[in-house]
């Protein structure tokens, strides 16, 4: 009887516990990045480069349209914020730069994969088009 109750309790908890992933906590962005200015004009050339690099480096987690539905998103422990969200788009370019290329936890550092500052800003410019 006792064993049955333990089993039933475990089964109940398995369904009752929340399954949703949690968003990561607030980012601590160094002042240097907060005040950073985007050095690339968001013209067609920059957006083309940004899209090309986004597809190569970001799409597998963040999805083709930035809706956090890439094939690797499911295996992450942390929920990924949609790039379409007002909260995401309200952040400054410098903050997006830090989040995108310095990263933290499951968001990897991309400073050694995207070496050129122009390329990094082009990705930020492209993220702005996903709103």
């Amino acid at each position: 009887m006792g064993l049955t109750l333990v089993f039933a309790g475990a089964l109940f908890m398995a369904f009752a516990l929340p399954q949703d992933k949690k968003m990561g906590g607030p980012w601590e962005i160094p002042a240097k990045y907060k005040d950073m200015k985007n050095s690339m004009k968001d013209d067609a050339g920059s957006l083309k480069i940004g899209k090309m690099l986004y597809t190569k480096h970001c799409k597998s987690c963040h999805g083709g349209k930035g809706e956090a539905d890439g094939p690797k998103a499911g295996s992450m422990k942390t929920a990924i914020r949609s790039f379409k969200s007002a909260e995401f788009q309200a952040q400054s370019d410098g903050v997006l730069y830090y989040q995108s290329f310095v990263g933290r936890d499951e968001m990897p550092n991309y400073e050694k994969k995207v070496l050129d500052d122009e390329d990094r800003w082009s990705i930020i410019n492209y993220l702005r088009t996903l709103k």
């Binding site: 004009k41 050339g45 920059s46 083309k48 480069i49 050129d116 122009e118 390329d119």
Partner: peptide, 15 residues
């Protein structure tokens, strides 16, 4: 080679 945005003084390697 590249787009019109590439008008910087330093001629960087192609992507």
């Amino acid at each position: 080679q590249e787009t019109e945005t590439e008008t910087k003084k330093v001629d960087k390697p192609v992507r």
